[in-house]
Write a protein that binds this DNA or RNA. Structure first.
Lengths: 117, 117
DNA sequence: GACGATGCCTTGACATTCTAGGCATCCAGC
DNA sequence: GCTGGATGCCTAGAATGTCAAGGCATCGTC
């Protein structure tokens, strides 16, 4: 996936506030570097989610700064240096909290959307 | 509900991008004025959603400007003048579209969150 | 040696939401 | 008659997060 792919279309935007949760979740599965996160998220969501690098890296920086992620340079299978992110204990808590909040909001919005009359 | 109630607590934030959809939905049920929207949304969502007036009114202005809502001054049951909003045809389309997008995103995020291993 | 994929990053614009106020009217209670 | 709360509208400014659009370096392949 080259840089040009990500600039071709503008749909598939995500909801502001969910990106952190998604990143934390992906990092919780196993340590992973940024570039791979994009692909993994896209793959799991069956192309419904398309995270931009311009959104991802600032978010990673933010999450690391808040102590929810920790980074470590390692070598990929491809033999390159990459920054692997994994969850801290606080990150785990944060993920749980955000997940709970997400579900609450989801339910609330469903209540609204399904109101007839 | 006075202004002071809404400044006392800071939780129950909503996701950026969902407010427009919620407003359109509420207005689709029946013409309604801004002040009542807040109460209605809170009531239907069982207090899970708390819309701030400072978010609401700019949003109403935005939606009206885009041709999705139309406003009309009428008298409330309480005998006051209030601005009643209702959906335009384009607003109806927009609501359907946003609802579909919301469901798609919801599903995508669920896929991520429910990924084990 | 050009091009695509892999990897990282930054800058600036943009939109949306929140904070924190303001204003006017009406009614109930003291 | 006055005060405070509820009903209704609105705004300015800050904070935040995302996006667009670039840049850089390395590697492999044609």
């Amino acid at each position: 996936m080259s840089r040009h792919d990500e600039t071709t279309r503008g749909d598939a935007e995500l909801l502001q506030g969910t990106l952190d949760m998604l990143i934390l979740k992906i990092a919780a599965l196993r340590p992973i570097h940024g570039y791979a996160m994009v692909q993994r998220l896209q793959q799991i969501s069956r192309d419904a989610l398309q995270i931009r690098q311009g959104s991802l890296y600032p978010a990673l920086y933010r999450l690391e700064n808040r102590g929810w992620l920790k980074a470590e340079w390692k070598t990929t299978e491809g033999g390159r240096e990459a920054k692997y992110y994994s969850l801290t204990r606080a990150g785990r808590r944060q993920l749980d909290q955000e997940t709970a909040g997400w579900k609450r909001l989801c339910q609330a919005i469903s209540l609204i959307l399904e109101t007839a009359e």
